[in-house]
Amino acid sequence: MIKLSDIEKVYRTDKIETLALKDINIHVQKGDLLSVMGPSGCGKSTLLNIMGLLDDPSRGTVEIEGHSVQKFKDKKMASFRNHKIGFVFQSFHLINDLSVVDNVEIPLLYRRMSGSERRKRALAALEKVGLSARTKHFPSQLSGGQRQRVAIARAIVGEPEIILADEPTGNLDSNMGQEIIDILFNLNKNDHTTIVMVTHDEHIADQTGHIIRLFDGSQVN
C-alpha cells in the first residue's frame, strides 16, 4: 500500500544541516495497524509527514499503490491526499470559525459532490465517532476528547484507505485517550482501514500489530 525505500531527510538552515531521517525502509500493507515509537526529536512526525505527502524526502522514494509520488504535481498530490489519506493530529487542528459538521465536511469540499450529499456523509461520520448530538457546536464549545473525535470524523469522512495519526492522545488524559484509541482500532477491525500511529505510550503501542522504533532518525528493529 505505502512503500518507503531508503528514505533520508535533511533539514537545511543557513548554517547547519540536521539529519532527521536516515535509511528508512517501511512497507505498510493494506489493513495494517502500525505504531511508530521513539523518543522526542527522533523523526517520528517527519516520517509520518513523508508518508502523508505533506513533506518531501531528501532522498529515497515513496510509492503509494505502486505510483512513485515524487513525480506528482501539487494538484495530483492534493487529490491523492484527499482520496487516500486521512490525518489526525495531536492538537486537533480544527477550524475554530466553522461548526463541527462544517469542519468534518472539509475533505469533501475538494471533491465534486452536492451539498446535501456532503452533509449526509459528514453526519454519518460523526455518528460513527458518537458525536451526532453536537453537530452544530463550535470547536471551542467541546472538550479535548470530543475535539479529537471530530478530527477523526473528519479523517474518515472521505473514506480513505489509510489514516495517519500523529500522537492522537498526546493532548488528552488517559481515559479520553483510550476512548480515541478504541475508535481508531475499531475502524481498523471493522472497516479494514489501514492505520499508522505515532505514539510514545508503550501501553498503546503494545495494542497494535506492529511497532516501528526510531532512534536519531534510524530504524532500530
Binding site: R81, N82, H83, H93, P107, Y110
Partner: peptide
C-alpha cells in the same frame, strides 16, 4: 496557517 495546513492535508491544492 493551521487552517491552511489542515485544508492542504485533506486535499486542497494550492490553487484552490
Amino acid at each position: 496557517s493551521s487552517e491552511i495546513g489542515v485544508r492542504k492535508a485533506f486535499g486542497a491544492s494550492s490553487k484552490t
